[in-house]
Nucleic acid binder design. Structure first.
Length: 598
DNA sequence: GCCGTTTTCGGCCCGACTGTTTTCAGTCG
C-alpha cells in the first residue's frame, strides 16, 4: 500500500469514528493520516526496515494506530475499517466532500433512505425525499443539490497559478473600499500554498453591512451562499469559493493569524497558549478576560514567546520549535534575485525576441539572464540543433554588446533522452555559458530508470542545472518517479544545480523537495521559464513562494549572486577550475590535516 | 488514540452560521 492509500484508509476510519460519535479518536486518526501523507519515504519501506516500532516515530502515531498501519501495509486492509464498511456500506469519503454534509448526516441518510453514494443522494434529492427527514428540510435539500453540482464541476483544489491574480484583485478592491480600514487575504493563498481550496478575506470596517454588500455584489460573484453581519460566503464565476469576514480592529492580528492557518500550525499555537495559562482564539490572546495580544500578528507571536513566523512556514513542520529557539531561517526575498537562468525566445517556442526579453528583464531590475531555448529533440518547438545554437550564441553576444545595463548569457534547455544522454554534442555545450537539461518525454519509466537517467545527465560535465526536475504539471501530469536521495547525492557529487521552475503550472521542485535540498546543501536557482516578457515576473510571483515554503535562504539560491560569482559556482566554463587562490587554500587545508593525522 | 518542561492519567482548539426546531445539532474553517 502506498502512503496515499494508507492515509486515505486512516482518514476513512476517522470519518466512521466521528459518525459513531466517538470522542477524540477521529482527530487522532486524522492527524496520523496527515502525517503519513506528508512522509518523504514509503511507509511500507519503514515497516520493512524497522517493523511496527518504526511506525511510532511518525508524529501522531502511537501503538493503536501503528497496528492499523501495519495491518494495512501487510494485508492491504484492516479489520476495523472492513467492519465499518460492512456495517455502514457507504462512500463516506466522497459524501463528506460535499459542502454541508458531514458524517452524522451521512449516517442518517443511510439509515433512513439507504443512500450510499453521491449518485444515490442526487436521486433522492430529485425525488424530494430528503426534506421529510428529521433535521433536514427543503433548504438543506436544495443546498445539497447545489453542493453536488459544484462538486462535479470542481472536485478538489486549485493550482495557485489559476487564482493568485484574481485573489490579489479582490484584495485590492477591498482595501480600496471607502469604509475599510484594513483588509488582507488569508488562508492557504497567503501561505503561498501550491494549491488553494478557497479564498479567505478579512477586513476591519466601521460599516460591515456595506462591505458585505460590496463583496456579495462584485461582478465576479456567481452565487451567495451566506451573508451575515460578520461573514459572507460566495462562489466566484471561476468556480472557486471566497469568504469574507469582518473582524474587530483589536482582533485583526489574531484573526489574520487564525485564518491564515494552517490548521496544524494553529492547533500547535493554541497548545502553547494553554501551557502558558492563556486562551487563543481568532479574537485574540487572553489571560482570563484580559487581552494580552491580538492587534497584530507580530504582537501575538511575541506574546507566545515566539519569533514572528512568516506565513509560508506555518505548517507545523518544525517552524514553531525553530521560532521558540530563535533560529528561524532568514527566508529569501524577491528583491535578492539578480538574474534569471531560464528564458525562452522566438527562436523556439517563446514569443519575444532576445532583445525583447533582455529589455523586459532589465526593466525588472535583473542584472543578467540566460537565453535557454529548446534543442533538437523538441522538434515541436523548433528545437535548435548545434548549428543554429551556435548561430544564436553569436546573436546573443552581439545583442549583449548593444544593450547596456544587463548581461546576456548564452544557454540552452537541452533535452535528456530516455537513456540519460543529451540531444546536443558536448563540444557545443562546452561553449555555452549555462546548460540546463530537462526531461520532456518518457514520463512513466520505473523509479530506477528515471533516477539513472537524471543522474547520468548530471554526470555530463557541461550540465549546470537540471530544469524542472520532476517534470510535473499541476492538475495534469504526475511527477516522474525518482529516488530523490540518489538525485541529490549526484547533485552534490557532480556540482549540479537544481532548478525551482516558477511556471505556475510547474512549481518544480516542490517546496517539500526544496526543504530537503536545503537540508542536504544542494544548490538551487529560481527561474521563470518565461516564454514571453510578462512571464519574467513568475520568479517573484510564484518561485520565491516555493523557495520560502522550502525554508530557503539567499545562500541556497545561486541567482542571488552577482554574475561573476554565479559563473564560478557553475560547472564548466569560467567556473570549472577553482581559482589559484582557492587551490592554495585547499592545499594548505590538506597539509594541515595530514600533519594532524601524523 | 495520542501525549507529557505542571501530567503515564486526564486532558484533547474554539466560535459562527444554517436550518431546523424553539434551544440545538451539524458542519465548517
Amino acid at each position: 500500500m502506498t502512503n496515499a492509500e494508507v492515509s486515505r484508509s486512516l482518514r476513512e476510519l476517522a470519518l466512521y469514528l466521528e459518525m459513531d460519535g466517538v470522542p477524540f479518536k477521529p482527530q487522532a486518526y486524522e492527524r496520523a493520516a496527515y502525517a503519513i501523507a506528508s512522509l518523504d519515504r514509503p511507509v511500507s519501506t519503514l515497516y520493512e526496515e524497522g517493523g511496527a516500532t518504526a511506525m511510532l516515530g511518525i508524529p501522531g502515531v502511537g501503538k493503536g494506530i501503528a497496528n492499523r498501519i501495519v495491518e494495512l501495509v501487510r494485508e492491504g486492509k484492516c479489520k476495523d475499517l472492513e467492519r465499518y464498511r460492512s456495517d455502514v456500506p457507504v462512500d463516506i469519503a466522497s459524501l463528506t466532500e460535499l459542502e454541508g454534509l458531514g458524517p452524522k448526516r451521512v449516517m442518517t441518510l443511510w439509515k433512513k433512505l439507504g443512500i450510499r453514494s453521491i449518485g444515490d443522494l442526487e436521486r433522492a434529492i430529485e425525488q424530494g425525499r430528503l426534506r421529510h427527514l428529521p433535521g433536514f428540510g427543503s433548504g438543506t435539500e436544495s443546498n445539497l443539490r447545489e453542493s453536488i453540482r459544484a462538486w462535479r464541476q470542481h472536485a478538489g483544489r486549485w493550482p495557485i497559478g489559476e487564482v493568485l491574480r484574481l485573489a490579489r484583485v479582490l484584495e485590492q478592491r477591498l482595501r480600496g473600499a471607502a469604509s475599510v480600514e484594513s483588509a488582507s487575504v488569508a488562508g492557504s493563498l497567503r501561505r503561498l500554498s501550491t494549491t488553494v481550496g478557497d479564498l479567505d478575506y478579512l477586513v476591519v470596517t466601521s460599516k460591515p453591512r456595506s462591505v458585505m454588500e460590496l463583496f456579495a455584489g462584485m461582478p465576479e460573484v456567481e452565487r451567495v451562499y451566506a451573508k451575515g453581519s460578520t461573514k459572507t460566503m460566495v462562489r466566484l464565476e471561476q468556480g472557486i469559493d471566497a469568504d469574507l469576514r469582518v473582524v474587530p480592529k483589536e482582533s485583526f492580528g489574531a484573526a489574520l493569524q487564525y485564518f491564515t492557518g494552517s490548521k496544524a500550525h494553529n492547533v500547535a499555537l493554541r497548545r502553547i497558549a494553554i501551557s502558558k495559562g492563556l486562551k487563543l482564539s481568532e479574537y485574540g490572546l487572553f489571560r482570563g478576560d484580559k487581552s494580552v495580544g491580538g492587534r497584530t500578528e507580530e504582537e501575538l507571536y511575541r506574546a507566545l514567546g515566539l519569533e514572528f513566523i512568516p506565513p509560508e512556514l506555518r505548517e507545523d513542520e518544525g517552524e514553531i520549535e525553530a521560532a521558540s529557539e530563535k533560529r528561524l531561517p532568514r527566508l529569501i526575498e524577491p528583491a535578492l534575485l539578480r538574474g534569471d537562468l531560464q528564458v525562452h525566445t522566438k527562436w523556439t517556442d517563446g514569443r519575444g525576441s532576445i532583445e525583447d526579453m533582455a529589455l523586459a528583464a532589465r526593466e525588472l531590475g535583473l542584472e543578467y539572464i540566460a537565453i535557454t531555448d529548446h534543442t533538437r529533440d523538441l522538434a515541436m518547438t523548433g528545437g535548435l540543433d548545434e548549428e543554429r545554437l551556435l548561430k544564436q550564441m553569436d546573436l546573443i553576444r552581439e545583442t549583449d554588446k548593444n544593450i547596456k545595463g544587463i548581461r546576456l548569457l548564452s544557454g540552452a534547455e537541452v533535452n535528456i533522452r530516455r537513456d540519460g544522454t543529451l540531444d546536443i554534442e558536448d563540444e557545443v555545450l562546452a561553449r555555452l555559458d549555462v546548460v540546463g537539461a530537462a526531461v520532456h518525454s518518457h514520463f512513466s519509466l520505473s523509479r530506477e530508470e528515471s533516477t539513472r537517467r537524471l543522474v547520468r545527465a548530471m554526470e555530463n560535465p557541461h550540465v549546470d542545472i537540471i530544469f524542472h526536475p520532476s517534470a510535473r504539471r499541476l492538475g495534469g501530469r504526475q511527477p516522474i518517479d525518482i529516488d530523490l536521495d540518489a538525485v541529490f547525492d549526484a547533485a552534490l557529487r557532480t556540482g549540479t544545480v537544481m532548478e525551482i521552475d516558477a511556471q505556475p503550472e510547474r512549481l518544480d521542485l516542490d517546496p517539500r523537495h526544496v526543504r530537503e535540498a536545503v537540508r542536504r546543501g544542494v544548490m538551487m536557482v529560481i527561474s521563470s521559464d518565461a516564454h514571453d516578457a510578462r512571464e519574467l515576473r513568475f520568479t517573484e510571483e510564484y518561485g520565491i513562494g516555493v523557495a520560502r515554503r522550502g525554508w530557503a535562504e539567499a545562500g541556497h539560491i545561486l541567482n542571488t549572486l552577482p554574475l561573476h560569482k554565479l559563473l564560478e559556482r557553475l560547472k564548466d566554463g569560467r567556473g570549472a577550475r577553482p581559482s589559484p587562490d582557492r587551490r592554495r587554500k585547499k592545499r594548505r587545508r590538506r597539509q594541515d590535516r595530514e600533519r594532524r593525522e601524523a
